[in-house]
Each structure stands twice: as C-alpha cells, then as structure tokens.
Write a protein that binds this DNA or RNA. Sequence first.
DNA 1: GCCATATATTGCCAATTGGTTATATAACCA
DNA 2: TGGTTATATAACCAATTGGCAATATATGGC
Lengths: 116, 116
Amino acid sequence: MTSDQLSRTFAALADPTRRAMLQRLSRGPATVNQLREPFRISGPAVSKHLRVLEDAGLVVTSRDGQMRPRTLAPDALDPVRDWTEKMRHTWEARHDALATYLIEIQDTPVNERTAS
Amino acid sequence: MTSDQLSRTFAALADPTRRAMLQRLSRGPATVNQLREPFRISGPAVSKHLRVLEDAGLVVTSRDGQMRPRTLAPDALDPVRDWTEKMRHTWEARHDALATYLIEIQDTPVNERTAS
DNA sequence: GCCATATATTGCCAATTGGTTATATAACCA
DNA sequence: TGGTTATATAACCAATTGGCAATATATGGC
C-alpha cells in the first residue's frame, strides 16, 4: 500500500469480504462475531480485515462490555466520490468541447472555416 | 486480486501512479511514453500498470503506427459509483428512520408512549 | 532488408496481502 | 479467584504486487 489515504481507501474496498462487511455495517453497527458469521474465515482474518477498514477510516470501533462493535464511517467514502467525479468531469468537459466544435464546423461552409 | 470485476477496478485505483495515469487520460488519449513521462519508472512498469487498468476496463488500447495510444473508458467507473452510493443510501435511510423516531418520541409525552 | 523507435514479455526480487494456528488480553459471570 | 466469551496479536506461509534489466516484437523510414 502506498500509504496515502486515498490509496488505502481504494485498497480497502478492493476485497469482496471487506465490501460485504461494509454493506452489513451500512445497516447498523455490528460486533466482530456478527461480521464474521456470513463467512468461513477465522477470527484473526476478520480482525485483519477490520484493521484495514479502520486504517482507511471506513469504520470506527467502540466498546460494549467484552464486545468491540464496529460502526460505518461513510464520510471516508467522500474522497472516493470526489476523485471519480473529477475524472468523469474532466473527461466530459473535453467531450463537450469536441462536440461543440463538431457542430460548429458542420454549420460553417468549408470555405468560411478558419484555423482556431 | 479476487478476480471479480469490482475488486479489480478498486484495486486498479488503489495506486497513485495508476490514478495519475488515469487523470492524464481524462484529458485525452496518450501514448505509453507520454504516460510514462511524469514518472521515474521503467517502461515495463508502465506496461504493467496499463495492463492492470485495462483488465479493470478503465482504459482501451488502439494502434497508431508503432504507438499504442490508450483512451480512458470512464464507464468502468460506474460500478464504483453505484456501489458506494448504495452504501451511503442504506446508511442514510437507517439514520433518517432513527431521526424520525427520535422526533416522534420527543413529541409524545412519556406516559403516552407505546412499545413499537 | 536494415535500423531506429515504441511497446510488450520474461525472469527475477523484495514487500505486501490474506489466510492459518497458537497464544494473549480483556471483560463478564459464578 | 477461576472459567468462559470476545477479540487481538504473533508467527508463519503461499500468492500477489510493483519494481527492475534483459530480451522480444512490431512498425515506419531509408
């Protein structure tokens, strides 16, 4: 992992087990054992996944007796949205400009066109 | 990589060099050497990054003489947006319901409250 | 056909990842 | 205090990753 926050977040999301855990958490807080239940993986494997999610800022841990319930922290998804939407916007701006240009030259007789 | 498409896409985005390449491509197609230029990495490293991006469906390759220009394929970002927005929506729906409940019990005198 | 340019493939390496079992810690319960 | 439950940490392993240098392939120009 390249240690920058956005890379950590994308990497945390690049695993189906972790994404399933996040989806479970989107419906409300859950204990480690609740998060483990849908999978056939060991406790330590769950702990490791949760560590990755916490390092990415996607979940936070609290304490309730001997349990350490996790809660989703959806604000950590904002940089993901911002980055992808910026990509899309740059791409679309370029294509809008291209479309405008194509319409312009279409409406201009060849002998009136100027190099721009 | 867990071999499902969404994981491949997230993993492709989890590297700052690859994200920078995508940002370059969002301003228009580019050759391998153009994509390489901002970095101090070898040609093969660039090829590998581009392979990852192509496997994720984020770029497509064409041919122009001896060059193989890459073009952004921004539709591959849609599943990323869909997944994250669904997460957010589930979370917010739950919190809207909680807020409604809190307002309800606030407006109801204690002795009129019923277990729901 | 020959050379230069653009890019890909191969073989290698160190670091990271996702999993395991065994062990430790922490809190509740009797 | 001792036992049980919930979770974390340690130590290890195989697979994957991101990088490199060396080599191969493909195309255009002479």
